[in-house]
Design a protein around this nucleic acid. Structure first.
Lengths: 189, 189
DNA sequence: ATCATTTCTTAAACTACATTAAGTTTTTTC
DNA sequence: GAAAAAACTTAATGTAGTTTAAGAAATGAT
């Protein structure tokens, strides 16, 4: 299972067999069944998760009791509540499998030691975090410039296959509106 | 001027005098006067900017012609349109000084070479990007869970000194509503 | 296959915030 | 320090999206 991660890392840096072996003990493969949790509100986030296969979502429960999905992660994406993960503070987020999902986890207690033993990975994670930052800048721009309907139509056009993979209520909250409103949009045409 | 950056870097990693001298030629100090631009829509973003003193904002012009501020950077923050900077694509963003501002710029053409000569900086930038990612996760959560009024009151409570530094119309767009609505909120109490 | 649960839809009433437009105050410029 | 420009306020009207509630359809469990 770790080979998916090695493959991904090698898109960004060159990690040879020996180095892969150094990395191996830091990696913990896990499977989560659909609707299973890797993190639940109130707990501390114990790992950074790389999705090998499947789909995870990050959400929190708002003041009205509604689930707000703030992030999805499919194959080859990392996901965590970074503040909770880094500082071992308790989290208000849930990380839940939207499909049966295989992940590789890197635990908080081993995260810094991993960089110590494999300084090369600083670069890999810098590049990953840059991609994240690009995605955030794009997302904020979309949120600030488009109506709910435009956001849905755009997302649907850009990621039609993904829209099929998750229930509409998750998508609605990710796009920043209610499931009822999504139904309304869809009915329109 | 570069000493502010060295000082910041040394909060995260240990950069000795020799290494500072290696870094120096990559750094370009610049001053921008209030309302001056480091990037204008349509141009390509040529640098990543570290704010030594002052305040910059990143904004774009939406379809209705209104300025939407998506990010501020004050002392010790980095700011850029990352996609445009990394891939030298033309940007839809503006980077403008909200106050007379001193920055240190690292040009795109030297960015990778800098990491090549000083691999230590991979770690510094990874840590900076992690902080960015934490800030993004927090921001998305706020945007998804609070009303406009709550966002304003919260921001005002958390960063009262900053609220004084920028015009209200910039703040309003950063918080995701109109200047008129901000006036209304403020009048309420 | 059937029952229970989850997800999706529809529609009416409601509200948070936008828009428009005019007037006022503050800041900048020469 | 006067004139011009930029920033802020107020109020009336408009609307995109929410809320509530009930029913229909799809999915999952035994």
């Amino acid at each position: 299972m770790a080979s998916a991660l090695y493959k991904h890392i090698n898109k960004f840096i060159n990690l040879n067999k020996d180095e892969q072996e150094v990395l191996a003990p830091f990696l913990q493969p896990l499977s989560v069944k659909k609707k299973g949790f890797l993190l639940e509100g109130g707990q501390t986030c114990r790992a950074n998760y790389f999705v090998v296969k499947g789909c995870l979502r990050l959400y929190f429960i708002d003041i009205k009791g509604a689930e707000q999905t703030t992030q999805f992660a499919i194959e080859n994406w990392w996901i965590t509540d970074l503040t909770s993960f880094l500082f071992q503070e308790h989290s208000e987020f849930y990380i839940q499998a939207a499909e049966p999902t295989d992940v590789i986890a890197i635990g908080n207690n081993q995260y810094e030691e991993m960089f110590h033993q494999l300084p090369k990975l600083e670069r890999y994670f810098r590049l990953i975090l840059q991609k994240n930052h690009q995605a955030s800048q794009r997302r904020i721009k979309f949120l600030y410039s488009q109506t709910a309907e435009e956001r849905y139509r755009n997302f649907n056009r850009l990621f039609p296959e993904f829209v099929q993979r998750v229930p509409q209520y998750m998508l609605a909250s990710y796009l920043g509106f209610t499931p009822e409103f999504l139904s309304k949009i869809r009915a329109k045409k």
